[in-house]
Design a protein around this nucleic acid. Structure first.
Lengths: 201, 201
DNA sequence: ACGTGCCCCTGACAGATGTCATGGTGAGGT
DNA sequence: ACCTCACCATGACATCTGTCAGGGGCACGT
């Protein structure tokens, strides 16, 4: 009997996945979580074999949760389940110690199988996604460039971004300029979107 | 026995919702669809009482599907099920003839109930969301402003936007300027995000 | 007929933005 | 010690943006 935790902020989706997996004879959903920061606490109270983690969650990102689990030496294996197949996410998830990475548009029938394989110690990653994250290469942005792009995501003017990151406006423009060069874009907004879409932020 | 159609592009979520609703004794999931443009065709082949429609779908947007159903005079009632509770979506969905509007972070247990109430002819709308869409008021943007903002969402420079909408650069800047005034923002990127977040595009 | 609102355009101007040259710091590798 | 690279900063420049003041056209309701 494989004991599961399901973490997803959308209650409807979470509930649906729970009932879906509950129908499998060898799977047992022991706990649920609606926020990333709840997961670690729940893991201490219950004995869990595999944790299904959504990436988009309030409190703590699914990948961060995964990293925290690895750091804490929890024996539970993590399976990332996400809406967006951003290439950068796969890389970060695996580096964070995830046992698998599944996109939400894979057939429902395959989910239980993925859970079993992750529990068995396999690394389960969507093939197309794995290939994409390989050709895409690693995140080319320096930490500061990421900070600046994150702050620029809203479309705020340089002055606001500079204040948010505690840098001079000139420095911000230099970072943006170099990020635009790396992403092959012409404006900070394009660069920010480009980076977000690849999971670089 | 209420006959259902479930339309959602994410196979995992769709499958999960299908099994969830399938457990209810009075509900019967007759058909599924992964694209908006499949829905109308499926409705012709099957007799459906209530259609659960996701908003974010390839081919045809859930709200567009709803509008098409109303226009075609299909007897099926529509229940919009979406991730994002954008105020503008509620308004547009109801104007398109939707019987209900449910956000994906409502408890799973309430979904079946919402389906039954929509089938009974009630209008089911999340209370908080309804209030928000009322205080928010209707979409203040003119059609052209919406076009321009849509093209500006990527962060492309004015020259590209102008080419995309077949307008002069000056006109585009005027439309952007007026959109920024209406949204109370300072840059086109902020205005575009603001409008998107409210379902105005 | 008239006003009103949306549409499209022009031209001009201040200010924001992106680029470039340049320089100094500190961490890490050879 | 030296080089490299990320980092922070400055100042100057060409260009892009956002604003404002015009203009004309069209559809609408009064």
């Amino acid at each position: 009997m494989i004991r599961l935790l399901v973490a997803d902020d959308q209650a409807l989706v979470r509930g649906a996945i729970v009932t879906l997996l509950g129908l499998e004879p060898d799977l047992d959903v022991v706990a649920e979580a609606g926020r990333g920061d709840e997961v670690l606490e729940v893991l201490r109270r219950h004995e869990i074999d595999v944790a299904l983690l959504d990436v988009e969650m309030p409190g703590l990102d699914g990948i961060e949760v995964c990293r925290a689990m690895t750091a804490a030496g929890v024996p539970t294996r993590a399976l990332i389940v996400t809406t967006f197949g951003r290439p950068g996410f796969v890389r970060r998830a695996l580096e964070a110690g995830a046992g698998g990475f599944v996109v939400k548009d894979t057939p429902a029938s395959e989910l239980a199988d993925a859970v079993r394989r992750v529990h068995a110690g396999e690394r389960v990653v969507d093939g197309a996604l794995a290939a994409e994250s390989l050709i895409e290469g690693p995140n080319p942005l320096t930490p500061r460039e990421q900070d600046v792009l994150r702050a620029a995501l809203t479309g705020a003017p340089v002055s606001v971004v500079a204040a948010a990151v505690h840098l001079s406006e000139g420095t911000v423009r230099n970072h943006l300029s170099s990020a635009m060069a790396k992403t092959g874009t012409a404006t900070r907004a394009e660069a920010a979107n480009h980076a977000r879409d690849r999971g670089w932020l």
